Computed example of a mutant assay.
Amino acid sequence: MKLYKIETVQHLNTTIEQCWDFFSSPKNLQTITPDNMSFVIQDFDEKRMYPGQIITYTLKPLLGIKVSWVTEITVAKENEYFIDIQLFGPYKLWHHKHFFAPTETGVKMTDIVHYALPFGFLGRIMNKLVVENKVKSIFDYRRNKIEELFNSKK
């Protein structure tokens, strides 16, 4: 199984409490996901993230094909980090770590995603041709949206 990694770091002009308040609410996933992916939360318990929380949603990541995705929050430490994994969905493995650290000027946010695709050799080809660029474009969108939400002058 070929494992891929994407890591991003972003500085936010906000407090750790405001940052955690936003990112620990599954409702805000839709805000930071590109509109063209038709992301819709199907079910979650309306609570802030906690270990064992299940979130189900649908999205259209490629070619307008609707996909169901189920994630679990495996670890969450308030104002510090949380980890989500895919239980069911398009990836063979999806493990996403979110870290938040206060700085003198705000918060340093680090995302680390490890993912693997099904179908062996064909999955590696699909990653090179399509998936890697798609995942990067989603994180680029997210970076820009978060920049707008936290770092733009109002």
Rank of each mutant, 00 (worst) to 15 (best):
G106R: 05
Q42R: 09
H96E: 08
V70E: 09
Q53Y: 02
L62M: 07
L93K: 12
H114C: 11
I85A: 03
T103F: 14
D111V: 04
N13K: 08
E72P: 02
M37T: 11
S68Q: 15
K153S: 11
L3I: 10
E104Q: 02
F88Y: 08
W20H: 02
F100Q: 02
F100M: 08
T74R: 08
K108M: 11
C19Y: 01
T71Y: 00
V107I: 08
T105N: 06
M1H: 15
T8K: 10
D35G: 13
T71K: 00
I138L: 14
M49H: 07
C19L: 10
V113P: 05
I32R: 06
E147I: 04
Q10C: 09
K154G: 07
T103R: 04
L3F: 10
V67K: 09
K136E: 01
H96L: 10
E46K: 11
F100L: 05
G64L: 05
Q86K: 08
T71H: 13
F150P: 10
E80H: 14
S38I: 00
H98Y: 05
K27I: 04
K108S: 15
K108C: 15
R48S: 14
V135I: 14
Q86M: 13
Y57F: 15
L29M: 15
K27M: 12
P102S: 04
G123S: 06
H98W: 11
R48V: 06
D43E: 14
G123L: 02
T56V: 03
S24M: 10
K47F: 07
H96V: 03
D45A: 06
Q86P: 07
K145Y: 09
